[in-house]
Design a protein around this nucleic acid. Structure first.
Length: 954
RNA sequence: GGCCGAGUGGCGGAAUCGGUAGACGCACGGGACUUAAAAUCCCGUGGGCCGAUAGGCCCGUGCGGGUUCGAAUCCCGCCUCGGCUACCA
C-alpha cells in the first residue's frame, strides 16, 4: 500500500457513508437518545471559514463516540439562509435572491461534506424552503393567537382573554382590545432610513447619524412595525436559566440582557392647570392627595401626574428635579411658552440621533428646562422638570426623578445646569467615596448607607428604608413596588424582500386606505410565498418595504367581497432559527410543524454548540418561541437546549508589528498609544504612526516583550488578530483540505487547545498533526508494499504487560477526556500511544485496533481505512467503544518526589501500592535524603501515598 | 464606566482534590541516512550558575503580599491583554 494519501482515502469513505446511509437517524430513537446540534450557518458567498468546523468537529466527535457507545444519535444540519446580502446582490445584478442562496448552500454543503461530518443529510433544511417557512408563518399565527396571562404565568389562546364588561357589546372594541394583548402586535416605531442607499439600516449600521457604509445621512422616521411581546416572558426566561447546563458566564450574559430590577413606581403631581410660574396649584395638589388616599394607586397614571420608576425609592427626599425623555408624550404639555422654542428644537435634534449616538458616553449631558414643576410627594416641594436625552423613553416610564446626590448621571447633569444637590444617604465608612464630599454635595454616592435629610426616615439603612417607604407610598396611593426589565419587546419586522412573508392581510376601506384591522391567513392556507415575479431596483425612494412594489395580484386579495392588502414587511433573520431544531426531527411532515410523538421522544437538544456571538439574541429568541409553543401544547419541554457549549474564536496566525513614523523611522511600541479617533500615535511627537508587519525572523524576545533584532530598543507588538478579508489573514478550509486533508484539519482544530478558548491559527500546527496521522499510518501499514498490506510488525499476538498497560491507560485517558470534551489532551494521549508503539518491533493487532477505534471520532477517514486493512468489512461507526481494565492501567513501580522543607530533594522508586510507613522508610533510606537529614531533627513528616513525602526539619 | 474571561518556555498548550511545573505538538539546535535535498529516524531544548566528567546548586507559572509542611492551583491588593455591553434610573 502506498503512503498515506488523504485525498483518495477521504473521498472513498465519504462515498461509502453516503451510499450506506451510515448516519441516518431513525424516526424514533432506539434505546438511549442523544440530540446533538450545531448552530446552523448562514451560507454566505464567501464559503466556509475555519471557525465553522471547530464546533462542527467537536459535535461530530461526540456523535461518533456516542454511536459507538450505543446511543441513538440525532445530528442534523441545515441553513439559516435568509439574509440581506442575497437581496443586495439581487439589486446589483438582477439575480434572484433564491438563486444566489441556493448556489451558496450548494457550496457550503460541498465544503461540509468534504470534512466528513456524520450528519443525517436526509434531514437537511433551509429556512428559505417554502415548506419550512410555511411553519415559521404558522408559529407566527400561534404568537398572534396568544395572550399572556400574568396571573397564571403562561400564554393562553386569545379566545380565553377576559373581555371587560364595558366593551363587551362593541365588536370592534373587542377586536382592538384583543389586539392590544396578543404576543404579536403592531406599533409605529422609528426606523433608520438612508435615502441615499435606499434602504433601512439596523442601529449598529448607523454611526454618528451617518450610514456606516458610504457615510450618507440617516433619518429616523416612524413606520408601522410588528413587535413580539417577549417581555411578557422575561421572568420565566430568567428563572428557567437555573435548570440549564450552560456556562455560568453565558447565563449571566442572558440575565444581564433581561436586566431585571426591583424598585418602585411613584407618581409626582403636575396638575392640569399650573400657575403662571409653571408650578402646580397647591390646593389641587392637596385635593389630589386626598383622592389618592381614598381611591388608591391607579393602574394607569392620570393626566395630572408624572409617573416614574426608581430602584432607589429611599432617595426620594433627594429628588431635586425631574427629567422626561424627549419622546415623552407629556413634553408638549409641560413646555411653558417661554421655553417652547428651545424644547421643540431640542426634541427634534434628539429625534434625528440614533440610539447609538444618544448613548455615546464620551459626550456631555444635554437638556432643556420645560418651565414646569412637579411636586415631590414626600415633602411637597415643587421641583423643575427638564427634558434630556439621557433618559430613555423605552425604559421604565420614560421619566425619572433625579437624585444628583446619589446617581452619577444626575450628578453630572445637575453640576452642568446648576441644579440643587441634596445628600440623603450617609455613606459612613464606604471606601469608594469621600464622605465629606458627599455630605457637601460635591460628589455622588451610589452605594448603600444611612438615611439623612429624610424627615422621619432618618437613620434607616438603605434596604429597610426602601421597604418602608414603598409600603408607605402604596398606603397613600402614591406608588407601588415594581419590577422592570432592560429587555425590550422584539421588533419583528424588516423592510426587506428576502424574508418570510407575514401571513397577514390588512383590511382596506372604500378609498383603499388601511382601516387598522388585520386578518390572519388561516393555517391551512399557508404558506404565503414571496411573489415569483419581482423587479429589484438598485435603490428605491421610500423606506417602505420592497414588497410594496410587488405585482398587484400578489399584493391585493379579495375575500367575501372585502378588499385586503398583504403585509409587506417580512420577518427578521432570527425568525427561522428560532425553531429549526424542532423541524429537524420531522422535516417532511406536511400536517404539523413536528409530530408530537417524535418531539417527545427526541427533545430536548442534549448538546448545542455554537459561537458566543449568539449567546444573547438567538438563544433568547429561540427560548421565547419555545416557551410559547410549550404553553400552547406544541412541545413537551419548557426549554429547548439542555446543554450549551460555546466554542472560542479562531484567530489568524500570530503577527509581529512595529510602528514607523511619517519619515519611516521605527517607533517603539511602548511609545505608541491610540488617540480618540482610533489611530495609533506616538506618545512624544503626537504624530500618527503606521503599523508595519515584521517577519518573525527579524524579532527576538527581550525581557517581557519582543524587540527588533537590529534595533533592540524598538519594541514590537506580537498578537493574533481576528481573521478578516481586509487584514488578509483568512484561512480557507478548501486549501487546508487540499494540502493536508480533512482528517488533519479536524484533528488540528481539536488539538489547538480547549474548545472554549480563543486560539490563533498555525499552518505549522496543521503540518504537525498531519505528521502524527502519517506515523499512525506507518505504525500499521506497510508503506513499501505495492498492495494494501499490514506492517510486518503488526502480529496476532498477545501484548506484553507493558504494551497492555499503554493500551489500557490510553483507553482510560481518551475516554475520560472525551466525556469532558477535552479533545486536545485526548489527542496528546493518542500521540503518546503512537510514539510508544512505533518503537515496538512487535505490535499486537488488538492494540492497533483499539487505537484505530479511539482515533475514529477525530479522524474518521483514516480510521475507516485502517480498520478495513486490519481485516474488517463493515464501517467502524457502530463498533463498540473500547473498554479498559482499571487493574491493567496501574504501574508496578512509581516514582515519588521526596521534599525537605517543601523543596524537591530526591526521587524514590517504590511499589505502586506502598503505604505511609513504607514510603517514609524508603525516603529515609534514599542516600541523598539521608545525607541531608543527617544531624537534623525531623519536626514533622508529611506522607501522601502515591504523591509525595516531605520532611520538615530543624 | 460596568460585566465576563485570560496571563505558564521562542509559540499553541498540559498539570484530577493544593503534592515531581512545562505532558503532547510546533519551532529551533546537533547527529544518522543521502552524491545532495526533502522525507524519515535518533539526541537535545525554561533561565542562570558550579563542575574535567559524573553530577550538583539557585531562580522560575503577569506583579506585590498572605495562608500552608508544600501554591500555577486558595485568599487579599494591583498590572496588562481580550471579549461583551453601553446613561436601564
Amino acid at each position: 500500500m502506498p503512503r498515506y494519501n488523504p485525498a483518495t482515502v477521504e473521498a472513498k469513505w465519504q462515498r461509502y457513508w453516503a451510499e450506506h446511509r451510515t448516519f441516518a437517524a431513525p424516526r424514533m430513537p432506539e434505546g438511549r437518545k442523544l440530540y446533538v446540534l450545531d448552530m446552523f450557518p448562514y451560507p454566505s458567498g464567501d464559503g466556509l471559514h475555519v471557525g465553522h468546523p471547530e464546533g462542527y468537529t467537536a459535535t461530530d466527535i461526540v456523535c461518533r463516540y456516542q454511536r459507538m457507545r450505543g446511543a441513538s444519535v440525532m445530528h442534523p444540519m441545515g441553513w439559516d439562509a435568509f439574509g440581506l446580502p442575497a437581496e443586495q446582490h439581487a439589486k446589483r445584478t438582477g439575480t434572484s435572491p433564491r438563486e444566489t442562496t441556493e448556489k451558496n448552500i450548494d457550496n457550503f454543503r460541498r465544503q461540509l461534506q468534504m470534512l466528513g461530518f456524520s450528519y443525517d443529510w436526509d434531514r437537511e433544511l433551509a429556512t428559505t424552503d417554502v415548506e419550512y417557512f410555511r411553519w415559521t408563518q404558522h408559529i407566527f399565527l400561534v404568537l398572534l393567537d396568544t395572550w399572556y396571562d400574568a396571573d397564571e404565568q403562561r400564554g393562553r389562546p386569545i379566545a380565553e382573554l377576559p373581555i371587560p364588561e364595558e366593551i363587551a357589546e362593541d365588536e370592534e372594541a373587542v377586536r382592538r382590545y384583543q389586539d392590544d394583548h396578543r404576543l404579536a402586535y403592531q406599533i409605529e416605531a422609528p426606523v433608520n432610513w438612508c435615502p441615499e442607499l435606499g434602504t433601512v439600516l439596523a442601529n449598529e449600521e448607523v454611526v454618528g447619524g451617518l450610514s456606516e457604509r458610504g457615510g450618507y445621512p440617516v433619518v429616523r422616521i416612524p413606520l408601522r412595525q410588528w413587535m413580539l411581546r417577549i417581555t411578557a416572558y422575561a421572568d420565566r426566561l430568567e428563572k428557567d436559566l437555573e435548570s440549564l447546563a450552560w456556562a455560568e458566564s453565558i447565563k449571566l450574559l442572558q440575565r444581564n440582557w433581561i436586566g431585571r430590577s426591583v424598585g418602585a413606581e411613584v407618581d409626582f403631581f403636575i396638575g392640569l392647570t399650573p400657575d403662571e410660574d409653571g408650578k402646580p396649584d397647591m390646593k389641587q395638589y392637596r385635593g389630589w392627595l386626598r383622592d389618592r388616599e381614598l381611591g388608591g394607586y391607579p393602574r394607569k397614571p392620570e393626566e395630572d401626574v408624572l409617573r416614574i420608576y426608581t430602584t432607589r425609592p429611599d432617595t426620594l427626599f433627594g429628588a431635586t428635579y425631574m427629567v422626561v425623555a424627549p419622546e415623552h408624550p407629556f413634553v408638549q404639555r409641560l413646555m411653558q411658552p417661554e421655553q417652547a422654542a428651545a424644547v421643540k428644537a431640542y426634541c427634534e435634534k434628539a429625534a434625528r440621533k440614533s440610539d447609538l449616538d444618544r448613548t455615546d458616553l464620551a459626550k456631555e449631558k444635554t437638556g432643556v428646562f420645560t418651565g414646569s414643576y412637579a411636586i415631590n410627594p414626600v415633602n411637597g416641594e415643587p421641583i423643575p422638570i427638564w427634558v434630556a436625552d439621557y433618559v430613555l423613553i423605552s425604559y421604565g416610564t420614560g421619566a425619572i426623578m433625579a437624585v444628583p446626590g446619589h446617581d452619577t448621571r444626575d450628578y453630572e447633569f445637575a453640576e452642568k445646569f446648576g441644579l440643587a444637590i441634596v445628600p440623603v444617604v450617609d455613606p459612613g465608612g464606604a471606601e469608594e467615596v469621600s464622605r465629606d464630599q458627599v455630605l457637601a454635595g460635591k460628589a455622588a454616592f451610589t452605594g448603600q448607607g444611612t438615611a439623612i435629610n429624610s424627615g422621619a426616615y432618618d437613620g434607616l439603612a438603605t434596604d429597610d428604608f426602601k421597604q418602608l417607604i414603598t409600603d408607605d407610598l402604596a398606603a397613600r396611593g402614591l406608588g407601588r413596588a415594581a419590577v422592570n426589565y432592560k429587555l425590550r419587546d422584539w421588533l419583528f419586522s424588516r423592510q426587506h424582500f428576502w424574508g418570510e412573508p407575514f401571513p397577514i392581510l390588512h383590511e382596506l376601506d372604500a378609498e383603499g386606505n388601511l382601516t387598522g384591522l388585520v386578518r390572519a391567513i388561516p393555517p391551512d392556507e399557508l404558506p404565503v410565498d414571496l411573489p415569483a415575479e419581482m423587479k429589484f431596483d438598485a435603490s428605491h425612494a421610500s423606506p417602505e418595504p420592497p414588497l410594496e412594489a410587488a405585482p398587484a395580484d400578489w399584493l391585493y386579495v379579495t375575500i367575501d367581497g372585502k378588499r385586503y392588502k398583504r403585509e409587506t414587511n417580512t420577518m427578521p433573520q432570527w425568525a427561522g432559527s428560532c425553531w429549526y431544531y424542532l423541524r429537524f426531527l420531522d422535516p417532511k411532515n406536511s400536517d404539523a410543524l413536528v409530530d408530537p410523538e417524535i418531539e417527545k421522544a427526541w427533545m430536548p437538544v442534549d448538546l448545542y454548540v455554537g459561537g458566543a456571538e449568539h449567546a444573547v439574541l438567538h438563544l433568547l429568541y429561540a427560548r421565547f418561541w419555545h416557551k410559547v409553543l410549550y404553553d400552547r401544547g406544541y412541545v413537551s419541554t419548557p426549554e429547548p437546549f439542555q446543554r450549551l457549549v460555546n466554542q472560542g474564536m479562531i484567530l489568524g496566525e500570530m503577527e509581529f508589528s512595529g510602528y514607523q513614523d511619517q519619515a519611516g523611522a521605527w517607533v517603539s511600541a511602548s511609545d505608541v498609544k491610540i488617540n480618540p479617533a482610533g489611530q495609533p500615535i506616538c506618545r512624544n511627537a503626537h504624530e500618527v504612526v503606521t503599523p508595519r508587519k515584521v517577519q518573525p525572523g527579524e524579532v527576538e524576545k527581550k525581557g517581557e516583550s519582543f524587540v527588533l533584532k537590529a534595533r533592540p530598543e524598538i519594541r514590537v507588538e506580537s498578537r493574533a488578530y481576528k481573521m478578516s478579508k481586509s487584514r488578509g489573514n483568512v484561512v480557507n478550509p478548501d486549501e487546508v483540505v487540499r494540502e493536508y486533508g480533512a482528517d488533519s484539519l479536524r484533528l488540528y482544530e481539536m488539538f489547538m487547545g480547549p474548545l472554549e478558548a480563543v486560539k490563533p491559527w498555525s499552518m505549522e500546527g496543521v503540518n504537525g498533526v498531519r505528521g502524527f496521522l502519517e506515523r499512525v499510518w506507518r505504525m500499521i501499514v506497510d508503506e513499501r508494499s505495492e498492495q494494501p498490506a499490514l506492517n510486518a510488525a503488526v502480529r496476532d499476538v498477545e501484548p506484553t504487560e507493558e504494551q497492555n498497560r499503554m493500551v489500557h491507560k490510553t483507553i482510560k485517558a481518551v475516554t475520560a477526556d472525551l466525556d469532558a470534551m477535552a479533545f486536545n489532551t485526548a489527542i496528546a494521549r493518542m500521540m503518546e500511544f503512537t510514539n510508544f508503539f512505533l518503537k515496538e518491533d512487535v505490535r499486537p493487532r488488538s492494540a492497533m485496533e483499539k487505537l484505530v477505534l479511539l482515533l475514529s471520532p477525530y479522524a474518521p477517514h483514516i480510521a475507516e481505512e485502517l480498520w478495513q486493512l486490519l481485516g474488517h468489512e463493515k464501517t467502524l461507526a457502530y463498533e463498540p467503544w473500547p473498554e479498559y481494565d482499571e487493574a491493567a492501567t496501574r504501574d508496578n513501580m512509581v516514582e515519588i518526589p521526596v521534599q525537605i522543607q517543601g523543596k524537591l530533594r530526591s526521587r524514590i522508586v517504590v511499589p505502586a501500592g506502598a503505604d505511609r510507613a513504607e514510603l517514609e522508610q524508603a525516603a529515609k533510606a534514599d542516600p541523598k535524603v539521608a545525607e541531608l537529614l543527617a544531624g537534623k531533627q525531623i519536626v514533622k513528616t508529611v506522607v501522601v501515598p502515591g504523591r509525595t513525602v516531605n520532611f520538615v526539619i530543624r
